[in-house]
């Protein structure tokens, strides 16, 4: 077993624990590279089936390539897709910096779809190495009625025993990719030939390293035009993955505030 086998096996185990303990479950699908890997792993966990819907929390501001990819892959993989709209930016917390405010629409859209469908488990494809508050997450992260992340008192989690009990009126976030790194994701995409949105590949010396809304995501300089070239780039780069996600860099705690409020 190599590192990818080990990560795959761990993620499959997490999916199966979630499915055995929590009903109903919805899985967030941002159409980004990580969540494509996540859908792939879920199909492995359930032997080609996907026994719960995938949710695209849709701000309406994705790049056109993302929508095109979403509709094609949803059809080809027979996904039960819920496209969940987000409330307008005017309804958001005005004390947040502008880009974080835009991002917070996703939190609101997510809370709405959780309420509408009564989901008690939400699978999200976040990774520890992406961002320093995500580095502190649990695999099973209970959320109360307001979806808030209580980072001050997270449940103990060891030896594969997770906090699978759903809080009253709330839900549990399940993070099957938490121990994957960015380069693991790309190596797995390469090995398994998982499709990704073409925006990740360099055009005119620029590529998207992390995909978000078109209003708050910018490409970074790169000549990596193939998966192999992306992997080679990641082996030496010192640029953080979310450098092109403007919402992270407006204020010292803007991302933490988003996450405490229920952002992914």
């Amino acid at each position: 077993m190599d590192e990818l086998d080990r990560l795959e096996s761990e993620s499959i185990g997490i999916f199966r624990e979630a499915f055995a303990a929590i009903h109903p479950i919805g899985m967030l699908w941002s159409i980004g590279k990580d969540s494509n890997v996540m859908v792939w792993l879920a199909r492995k966990a359930f032997f080609g089936h996907l026994p719960f819907p995938v949710i695209h929390v849709d701000t309406g501001l994705e790049f056109p390539e993302v929508y095109e990819f979403r509709d094609r892959v949803a059809r080809e993989w027979s996904l039960n897709l819920i496209a969940a709209p987000c409330p307008p930016i005017e309804a958001m917390d005005q004390s947040l910096p502008p880009n974080a405010r835009s991002a917070s629409r996703k939190t609101a859209g997510l809370k709405q779809v959780v309420a509408d469908h009564g989901f008690r488990g939400i699978v999200a494809g976040i990774r520890r190495d992406e961002q320093s508050t995500r580095a502190k997450e649990r695999v099973f992260s209970p959320r109360g009625a307001e979806s808030k992340w209580d980072f001050r008192s997270q449940p103990p989690e060891f030896w594969g025993h997770f906090a699978t009990t759903v809080p009253e009126g709330g839900h549990v976030r399940i993070h099957p990719l938490l121990s994957w790194s960015e380069i693991d994701i790309w190596r797995y995409i390469q090995r398994e030939q998982i499709p990704v949105v073409p925006l990740y590949f360099s055009r005119n010396g620029m590529r998207f390293r992390s995909l978000g809304e078109s209003d708050i995501t910018v490409p970074v300089p790169s000549n990596a035009a193939t998966i192999a070239e992306i992997i080679a780039e990641l082996e030496t780069t010192r640029v953080p993955e979310r450098a092109g996600r403007t919402m992270d860099h407006e204020a010292e705690d803007s991302f933490e505030r988003l996450r405490v409020d229920g952002y992914m």
Binding site: R128, D129, S132, T133, A135, K136, F151, R152, Q154, S179, S181, E252, D253, E256
Partner: peptide, 29 residues
Amino acid sequence: TDALQIERDQGITVDVSHIPFKSSKRPYV
């Protein structure tokens, strides 16, 4: 590594961080 506001303000680590790095011999977390 103390990523949370409360950790920087109070100068203590509240919860676990996982941080990847590499030596010349192997990768670490």
